[in-house]
Every structure is written in C-alpha cells, then in structure tokens.
C-alpha cells in the first residue's frame, strides 16, 4: 500500500494534462475582437496627413444613403499629375470620366426641386488631401465635379490640432 502511494506521488509517474479550453476561449475572444475592429473598408483610406480644421465634423458615410466616391491626394500626387482612388492612380482626364460614370450611376438628387431641374447628381465626393499638397489637385476635383453636376463634396480634415499647425486657423 505504502509502495503504491509512493509510486502515485512520484512526479515521474504523474501525467500532466494541459487544459486547453480556457486558452481556446480566450483566443477566440481576441480573434473576434480583431475581426470586428479591423475595418476592411478603411483600406480605401490612404495614409494621409489631413489638414487641421476646428469646425470639421464627423460624418458617418454609411448613414448618407447614397453613392460615395473617395478621392485621396498624397503630397506628391499633384506634381505627378494624378490622384489616388482605391489604390489606383487616375490622371485628370481619367478622373473626369470616372466621376461622370459614378455620377450617372448614382442618379439624380431628388431632395430639392432645383436639383431635379438642373440634373444634380446624388453622388457624394470625399476629398482627402494631404495638408502640404498643392491645392491644384483639389481644383481638378472641383472642376470634374462641376462638369458632372456633382455638388456634394466633403473635405477630409482633422479636428485635432498638431504642434506643427501653428500657421493653421484655430
């Protein structure tokens, strides 16, 4: 009896079982968290240092209930004669064609009689331009929007002022 007890107490004879269930639970929880937080739609958003504007307001694009075209303009894009949409580069002519197609696809804005009469498009354009980029590329966007009767334009801006924004209006 004593020998049997001694054998049982001997660590060399003890079978170690790792309890996997809590670890799998935790891993699944972390996985679910990252899956929910990781927004794949945000891949359209290029990494851009947006200009500061204290009056900039958060807009839920999903709540706009209309077609949205997101245009990114990096610092060097205007000098190279293009803008970036969904990772692809478009020059001014290509941008004009794209906006025209998207404006037609979105249909006419029927929220206002004047808009219906003038054939204003429902398309909403969001311009995210680097704060140091020359204004010219945004002028191209305004120009092509005007040509395609797109009037709803949002300008991406950061409501948080950085130290280097000393020459920006607060």
């Amino acid at each position: 009896m004593a020998k049997k007890e001694r054998e049982e107490l001997d660590p060399r004879n003890t079978k170690i079982n790792i309890n996997m269930a809590p670890m799998i639970d935790m891993t699944f929880l972390i996985l679910t968290f990252f899956m929910l937080v990781c927004h794949m739609g945000a891949m359209q958003l290029e990494e851009i240092a947006l200009p500061f504007a204290s009056c900039a307001q958060k807009v839920e694009e999903a709540a706009l209930d209309t077609s949205i075209l997101l245009i990114n303009i990096k610092e060097d894009d205007p000098a190279n004669g293009h803008v970036t949409i969904g990772g692809r580069k478009y020059d001014k002519d290509e941008l004009g064609k794209l906006v025209a197609v998207e404006a037609r696809r979105a249909g006419i804005d029927k929220s206002n009689e004047e808009y219906v009469r003038k054939g204003v498009s429902r398309l909403h354009v969001i311009v995210r331009c680097d704060r140091d980029a020359p204004y010219e590329a945004v002028q191209w966007v305004f120009e092509v929007c005007s040509m395609s009767k797109v009037i709803h334009v949002y300008i991406g801006a950061s409501p948080q002022q950085l130290e280097r924004d000393e020459d920006a209006a607060s």
Binding site: M35, A53, A56, K58, I155, A157, P159
Partner: peptide, 24 residues
C-alpha cells in the same frame, strides 16, 4: 488568423469632414 487581424488592424486618428456644396 489572429496574427493576420492583429497586423491588418490600423488605429487611425479622429477624422472629420467639412461640407463644401458646390454652386449650381
């Protein structure tokens, strides 16, 4: 999967918009 989502996650700063309605 966990490693993929951890690396794919990008914390971005707060972003706002200024509405600029173009004239008709």
């Amino acid at each position: 999967l966990l490693i993929f989502f951890m690396f794919a996650l990008k914390f971005t700063g707060e972003e706002g918009r200024l509405y600029a309605k173009l004239p008709t």
